[in-house]
Simulated assay, not measured.
Amino acid sequence: MSLSAMSLSEEVVALLSEVYDRLRGEIVDGSLDAGAPLVELTVAERYGTSRTPVREALRRLEQDGLVERGDRGMRVRTRSPEEILEIYEARISLEATAAAAAAQRHTEFDLIRIRHAQTAMEATPDDDPRAMAAANRAVHEAIWSAGHNGTIVDLLTRLNNHLTRYPATTLKAHGRWGEALSEHRTLIAAIEARDSERAHDAARGHMAKARELRLQIYQDDLTSPP
């Protein structure tokens, strides 16, 4: 491959990534509502690009679970309480399995990463929902990694992508921030003690509470005035 061809290829990849990131960002932050149509030509004109990178970005977003095919083409994936239950049914089981694996297989370096993430979460102000969600995810990702099972990490990452379409964090519910921090401490203690059964149960209970809060937030959003 010539240098010019390589440069062109790099430019195409960069453009595809840019379109994907912009579309994903608009879906996650709510700029594009659930059910909003995603017409290739319209999106391409808005971004000032051709339809090809838009088509590829939509394909990737469909794989991520953020867009879906409707009767009239692609659209932002719709939300439902049934989907919340489906996501959490899988996530609760996987989080529990990941925690048990972390208890069994963690290294000292894994513990350092988990403790560091928890310390950062403890220091996160409780008036910044985005920072709270990011800090919480960092703890969970450190625990996933400590289980040394790439398939579980991949599946949990994909499930988390689905939840990004539900922008409100459960951590803003009254009293939940402190409760979540405490639950994390219990979970981490079980992992440190290599008590896989206790780690499994702690993770399962932690995520079950998150499911109930997520359903409540969804219901509140439906009944709140526009």
Rank of each mutant, 00 (worst) to 15 (best):
R22E: 15
T169I: 07
P167I: 07
M121P: 00
H184E: 02
G65K: 00
T49Q: 05
E68H: 00
A202W: 04
E192D: 10
G30M: 04
A203G: 06
R211V: 04
G30I: 06
L38M: 15
S9D: 14
A202Y: 09
E122F: 01
T52N: 11
A168G: 03
R165D: 00
P226K: 00
A203W: 05
R198Q: 09
P53V: 05
M121V: 05
L159N: 03
L61F: 01
L215G: 11
G205Y: 03
A189H: 10
A14V: 01
E83Q: 13
L41F: 04
A146S: 14
N149L: 02
S31N: 11
G147K: 14
I87S: 06
S93Y: 11
D220W: 00
D128Y: 05
A44S: 15
L3C: 01
A168D: 10
T107I: 08
S93I: 10
R204K: 12
Y47Q: 14
S93K: 14
G25R: 08
E141G: 01
H148C: 09
A199V: 03
L213K: 06
A57K: 13
L58H: 07
M207W: 07
G205E: 11
N149D: 15
T186Y: 03
R91Y: 09
Y47A: 15
A57V: 02
S17A: 15
V39E: 15
V13N: 10
E95W: 11
T107G: 15
V39K: 09
I188Y: 02
P81T: 12
A210K: 05
E95A: 15
A123D: 10
R59N: 14
R69W: 04
R77E: 06
M74I: 15
A208S: 09
L171H: 04
V67I: 12
D110F: 08
L15I: 02
S7K: 14
A103L: 06
T223K: 12
L187P: 00
P129C: 03
P226Y: 07
D220R: 07
Y166L: 07
N136R: 02
R185E: 14
L181A: 03
H148V: 13
E89D: 13
R176Y: 03
I114R: 14
V153I: 14
T49A: 13
E26G: 03
S50F: 06
P81A: 15
A101Y: 01
A203M: 09
Y47R: 13
S2W: 08
Q104I: 09
S17Q: 14
M132G: 05
L38Y: 08
P37L: 08
H206Y: 12
F109W: 07
M121F: 12
E10K: 13
A5H: 10
M6K: 08
A134F: 07
H162I: 01
S50W: 03
E179Y: 08
R72K: 13
E86N: 05
T49P: 15
A210D: 08
